[in-house]
Structure formats: structure tokens, C-alpha cells
Design a binder for these strands. Structure first.
Length: 298
DNA sequence: AGAATCGACCGGTAGC
DNA sequence: TGCTACCGGTCGATT
């Protein structure tokens, strides 16, 4: 599933195709795409048409189109969402299949959920097998500590670990104020965002911390260290995601989310810990399947 | 009011 | 082979 680095790859890949362009046509094909909106699918289509996309922004795993009418089109990929681009008047696209079997032709996909066509004929397609992803049309609201704006529905989503304005010390203090297990706090998105189950386990492993520890029982220095570990893991994943795909359509494809991650613990039950050689264990922590080294994570 | 918890959503697949 | 249980991220309802 797309985690923060993968969403950033999709955002960056989408940006040059849509920035500065006007939406000429839009279609919501499946009602679940717009389930979090008060507006009907038809109304959302109508509101999109004519809007100009000024930028593609992101916070955590949420990205959004900054529209010139003051709104934001929030896009969440959920578990399986893909944003794909085709150029004007492409009648068929054998190059997609040839480059990678994982890449689908959106126009024939049974999981095509919605699309927008831009003024120059470029079309952006949203394909989402499990329909956990969604589009949500929102007003933009100011962020208190800077000149930025975010969609109103994301007011509870904190800055993420790739955000240059994140304050790790401030986050550490907030985390320490919680009596919950540290892994639950990492997954919560309200103090620091963009961390999913995989990256939570990986950063806890790198920091040598058990996800079951109460956040309040961890020292501030160790909490900052944990957040730095998260930054390290995500930056490295982003580098790999940015280089493992070539050209045109590809880095706009959710399939890029399946680039080889170098994982130390996640999914490796029974394998030796890369740091100490003990066998990786799996158990439920904070309601999630969690992989950890029983001897070097405390 | 706010924090924590829980069920719902979906379909591929692991495990029987 | 066919069936069931499970998994994941987020939201909204409930405690």
C-alpha cells in the first residue's frame, strides 16, 4: 500500500502534468470516490470543470490539487489507489504493458473510479481496486504557524517527517504527554503524520524501541531519536522510489509504491535481526500486526 | 471538551 | 477445490 514516500513520488510525478492547466471535463464513476463529501458526485464534477490547478501539495499521505477558486481537491490513495496520466489522443498504450506488467491501462481497468481531462487533453485517471481511496473537495484554511494553507478536512493532520517545518522537539513533547503505547501514537496522525504500519515498525526497530512502551515512559531524547530514525527511513525510501522508475507515466503510478523497500523487520517474522541476530517476532501491538526484535527493542 | 476505542468499508490472499 | 478469516488507513460513532 502506498505509504508517505510513495505518495510523495506520485505527487511529484503528477505535478508537471497538471500544474497551470485547467480542468475541461471530469467524471466520478463510482460513488465511493466522493463518499466523504457533502456534495453529490454531479456537483463535484461541475465544480471541478473550469477550475485551474495551481499546484499539487501534500501532507502525510494526503495530497491535494490547489484550485484557483480557493478550493482544494483532496486525494487519498487508501490501500490501492493509483493516479495515472495519459497524453492527448493516445488511442492505445502498449508501452505501459511493455514497461512493467504491474502498470495497468486505466481506460480498460475494471477498477477505474474517476478521471479529469485537462485543457490540453492530458487525462488523469484514478484507479482503485479496494476503494479505500477517495477524492474530497474542500475549502482551504490557513495554517497557524506559517503562510501555508491546507484543506479544511485535514486540520487534524499534523506535519509529516518529510516536512521541512516539522519541529521534532515539539513533537517529542506532545508524544510524551500521551499515556498510550508509542506505536499507537505514531499511527494516529495528529502529532506527526504519514506513518503507517510498515514505517512505524521500521523506525521503532531503528531506534531500538518497543512499540508497546507507553509514550509517557520514554525520554525526550529517545523520542527525538525515534523521529529522526523515521526521517532516515522515509528519506531513503523516497530516494529509491524516485530512481526505480523511468519516464513518462510511470512515477505517477501507484505501482511505484511497490518498489523494493529495504525492510529490516516488517514482514520478516522468523528471520534474524540485522542488528543482533535474534529472531524477529510478530504480535499485535496497538491493534496492529507488529514485527520487532525481542532482544534489541526495549 | 477531549481522549481513547471500535466498527465499517473492500477484495486479494493466506490458511485451512 | 472452495471456503473463511484476516489485513490495512481513515472516518465517524461511541465510550
Amino acid at each position: 500500500m502506498p505509504e508517505l514516500p510513495e505518495v510523495e513520488v506520485v505527487r511529484a510525478g503528477l505535478q508537471p502534468w497538471v500544474e497551470g492547466r485547467r480542468i475541461a471535463d471530469a467524471a466520478i464513476l463510482h460513488p465511493r470516490v466522493t463518499r466523504h463529501n457533502d456534495l453529490s458526485p454531479a456537483t463535484i464534477e461541475a465544480r471541478l470543470v473550469g477550475a485551474r490547478i495551481e499546484a499539487v501539495s501534500r501532507r502525510g499521505k494526503f495530497m491535494w490539487w490547489v484550485l484557483d477558486d480557493g478550493d482544494a481537491m483532496v486525494i487519498h490513495l487508501g490501500m490501492s489507489g493509483q493516479m495515472l496520466v495519459t497524453e492527448r489522443a493516445q488511442t492505445s498504450n502498449p508501452s505501459i504493458a511493455r514497461r512493467s506488467p504491474a502498470l495497468t491501462d486505466p481506460r480498460t481497468s475494471p477498477h477505474l473510479r474517476s478521471w479529469v481531462r485537462l485543457g490540453d487533453g492530458t487525462t488523469v485517471w484514478f484507479v482503485d481496486q479496494r476503494t479505500f481511496g477517495y477524492w474530497r473537495l474542500d475549502a482551504r484554511i490557513p495554517v497557524s504557524d506559517s503562510a501555508e494553507q491546507i484543506p479544511s478536512s485535514l486540520s487534524h493532520i499534523a506535519r509529516d517527517l518529510l516536512d521541512p517545518r516539522i519541529d521534532l522537539s515539539f513533537c517529542a513533547h506532545q508524544i510524551k504527554a500521551s499515556s498510550r503505547m508509542i506505536k499507537a501514537v505514531l499511527l494516529e496522525q495528529t502529532i506527526v503524520s504519514g506513518i503507517g504500519n510498515i514505517y512505524a515498525d521500521e523506525m521503532l526497530w531503528l531506534a531500538g524501541l518497543s512499540g508497546a512502551r507507553r509514550a509517557s515512559a520514554i525520554g525526550l531524547t529517545r523520542l527525538v531519536n525515534l523521529l529522526r530514525a523515521g526521517q532516515f527511513v522515509m528519506r531513503r525510501a523516497l530516494e529509491q522510489g524516485g530512481t526505480s522508475f523511468d519516464s513518462l507515466y510511470v512515477n505517477v503510478n501507484g505501482a511505484s509504491g511497490y518498489f523494493a523497500r529495504s525492510l529490516n523487520v516488517y514482514g520478516r517474522r522468523g528471520a534474524p535481526c540485522p542488528r543482533c541476530g535474534s529472531l524477529i517476532k510478530k504480535k499485535v501491538i496497538a491493534g496492529r500486526g507488529s514485527y520487532y526484535c525481542p532482544s534489541c527493542q526495549r
